[in-house]
Amino acid sequence: MLGLTEADVSAFWVTLKLAAVGTVILIILAAPLAWWLAHTRWKGKVIVETLVAMPLVMPPTVMGFYLLLWLGPNGWLGGMLESLGARHLAFTFTGIVLGSMFFSLPFVVQPLQNAFSAAGARALEVAMTLRASPWDRFFTVILPLSRRGFLSAFVLSFAHTFGEFGMILMIGGNIPGETKVASIAIYDHVETMNYSAAHALSLVLVGSSFCLLMLIYVLNRRFKVVGAL
């Protein structure tokens, strides 16, 4: 596979799994928050919006450091799991999934919030007068009107996770087959001056990122044309 070693392929698949699992879970959990931000009139909403946007400006290593403390054996979540007889989440795949979800939060919440705001309340009011249940209103009204927002949220979060390095290294370390992602594998190659291997894996990531971004442009344009019809 383009001159990649077995370890590189393993790191790439860990990256794919991390991006897919983290993005799907994050969209499910973040959609209610985005809906609330789009419709609430609470004056303190700006505080929540600022907290959601913090990963955009916060250094990844800073976020990774505090998540490591939180997920580790002496942290709030990690310590609670240890007291229940379970293993803490630092240096585990579950731990880097949680970390990637925090780091990609604005890339999901903001597109969904904008989509929910653009959808307006008129269509929901009509559905309510027809006695549609909340689930019916979501799947037949909200989801179709917000599908471009959901698509943007998925692709941006997925692509963003592809290139993450500092935060994942802090909370996941460099465990092959579990927490070693492609960006860390590239760093290892550069550190050992194996530039050809670093170049090969970098090309795979660049090509994957390009295809993901092109997909969002193509599908958004298609949805726009369908909506106009």
Rank of each mutant, 00 (worst) to 15 (best):
G227Q: 14
A38L: 08
A182P: 01
L130F: 07
L84V: 08
N114P: 04
F139H: 13
R41L: 11
L16Y: 07
C211H: 13
P111D: 04
E49F: 04
A123V: 10
F103V: 05
E178V: 09
A118W: 10
I216C: 12
V226C: 14
K17P: 00
G99C: 07
V141R: 04
K17R: 15
E82R: 10
G72V: 15
E164D: 08
E6D: 09
N114V: 09
I96P: 02
L89K: 02
L229P: 13
P60M: 04
V126G: 05
P32G: 03
E6A: 06
L124H: 10
G72Q: 09
I142G: 03
T5R: 15
F107A: 04
V24P: 13
S196F: 12
G22Y: 01
F223P: 06
A159F: 10
L212Q: 08
A86P: 02
S183F: 00
A30M: 10
V52P: 02
F102C: 06
F210T: 13
T94G: 13
L69P: 08
M54N: 13
V9A: 12
V206Q: 07
M167C: 08
L151S: 10
G72P: 10
L212F: 15
F138A: 02
L37V: 01
F165L: 12
A119L: 12
P106C: 14
S157L: 06
W36I: 01
A7M: 06
F162N: 01
G78L: 05
L37Y: 00
E82F: 04
A31F: 06
E49G: 03
A118F: 12
I175L: 13
A53I: 11
Y195S: 03
S104N: 10
M54I: 08
K180M: 05
F210Q: 12
E82A: 09
K43Y: 14
F102S: 02
H199T: 09
R122H: 09
L68S: 02
G72D: 15
M54S: 11
L151V: 14
L105A: 02
D136C: 07
M63C: 15
P144H: 05
A198F: 01
P111Y: 04
T15K: 00
V21K: 05
F12D: 02
L69M: 15
F139S: 12
V97L: 06
S104C: 14
Y187R: 00
V155Q: 10
F150S: 07
A118D: 14
L215V: 13
W135H: 14
M58K: 11
L51R: 13
G22N: 03
T94W: 11
A159V: 10
G78K: 04
W42E: 08
V225E: 15
F65E: 07
W36K: 03
L203Q: 06
T179R: 04
L37P: 00
P73G: 10
R147A: 06
A19D: 06
A127C: 05
A90E: 09
L219W: 05
V218A: 11
L4R: 05
V97M: 08
L37F: 00
S117K: 11
V190P: 01
V62I: 08
T94L: 07
G163M: 04
V14I: 11
G85N: 08
V206E: 03
G227C: 14
V190R: 00
F102K: 03
E178G: 04
F103S: 02
I216Y: 12
P55E: 05
L18G: 01
G172Y: 01
